[in-house]
């Protein structure tokens, strides 16, 4: 059987969250030795896991060493490779923004237009370019030009970018921000219209490898079935409610009157054994409710006589097929 290499981040902000995310999706990653760069996913025996830096995940997928990988949207945007396609762009963790940040003391600079004017000041009065420290030169260039800033120099830097203006080797920075604490600690402020990329973790694949290797496509399908079902599951809660009524039809009608309590397909209603109390018969109703409507749904159930309502999180919701996998098939066709 041909093996499928799946590249995951070995360090950095999304390394640990990626393992947690996959575990939540029922795809626990086993790493026999913390110092080794390989691992397995027991749920998909055909897959080998390769741990790499986020940028190398992209390169390994681009050169076909790995057929699938998890990295950041920011990395794909900056170092995009022709053959790499983003299979899932909303894994919903590892959120961060690539932003333009200026020294807090520049109280006159509140947006990109202000910055464009300051860049002109630098050129005309200091006869030098505005210096920008970043590890994202391509997206930074593109963004600054789009905002009318043309006279600047990119200062290539690795790590501790936020300190560059204080140390004095750059005037402003373009960097990834999660909470903004590091920027504040370094007396920098992000510009509200200076967001270059809204990033999060994403699943990527090699177009050519997926087209040519059915086993890679099969691994992608199993991954996406788990991921889609788990992500969708997170948005639902299962409610169990006891309710008295004449019969199951009567209860079904009452509950289905409100679109919120119709569940995914309709309520499941079962009689409660030995619960006859006079004329009314007790039933247990099971329902899947979107989290955002939970309280509203509970209030409605109470209003129609529901009681002893218990709620448990839904782990997976499997639809007819994985929507993301269907999109992938269409994109590769």
């Amino acid at each position: 059987m041909n093996r499928v290499m799946f590249a995951l981040p070995s360090k950095g902000a999304i390394a640990e969250p990626t393992l947690n995310f996959l575990q939540d999706c029922g795809l626990r990653v086993d790493k026999p030795n913390p110092r080794q760069y390989i691992g397995t996913i027991p749920a998909i025996p055909s897959v080998d896991v390769l741990f790499q830096r986020v940028i190398d995940v992209l390169y390994k997928v681009a050169d076909g060493t790995a057929k699938l990988g998890v990295t950041g949207l920011d990395v794909v945007a900056e170092y995009g490779q022709d053959d790499v396609i983003v299979i899932h762009d909303n894994l919903n963790y590892g959120h961060c923004k690539l932003v333009v940040a200026v020294p807090e003391a520049w109280i006159d600079v509140e947006n990109m237009i202000d910055l464009a004017e300051v860049a002109l000041d630098f050129r005309e009065t200091k006869l030098r370019n505005l210096r920008v420290a970043t590890t994202y030169p391509n997206k930074t260039r593109e963004f600054l030009h789009k905002n009318g800033i043309h006279h600047f120099s990119i200062v290539a830097a690795e790590g501790a970018i936020e300190a560059a203006p204080t140390i004095g080797y750059a005037d402003i920075v373009v960097d990834l921000v999660q909470t903004g604490t590091t920027l504040r600690e370094n007396h920098l402020k992000p510009l509200p219209d200076g967001v270059i990329i809204n990033s999060q973790a994403c699943l990527i694949g090699s177009r050519q490898m997926l087209q040519e290797h059915p086993e890679a496509m099969n691994a992608a399908r199993i991954l996406l079935e788990h991921i889609d079902a788990a992500l969708l599951g997170k948005t639902y809660t299962q409610l169990t409610v006891n309710i008295a009524g004449e019969n199951a039809e009567d209860i079904g009608r009452k509950i289905s009157l409100n679109p919120l309590t119709r569940g995914l397909q309709g309520p499941t209603i079962a009689p409660i054994f030995g619960s006859d109390s006079g004329a009314a018969q007790w039933f247990t109703v099971t329902l899947i409710i979107p989290n955002k409507s939970l309280l509203e749904a509970i209030e409605y159930l109470r209003s129609v006589g529901g009681t002893q309502i218990s709620a448990v999180p839904v782990r997976y919701v499997f639809l007819n097929e994985s929507p993301t996998f269907a999109r992938l098939v269409a994109a590769l066709a």
Binding site: A105, V118, K126, P165, G168, D171, I172
Partner: peptide
């Protein structure tokens, strides 16, 4: 230096 390449007067 602390306000990175611009003087107080320039900012004001």
């Amino acid at each position: 230096m602390a306000i990175s390449g611009r003087t107080r007067d320039e900012i004001l």
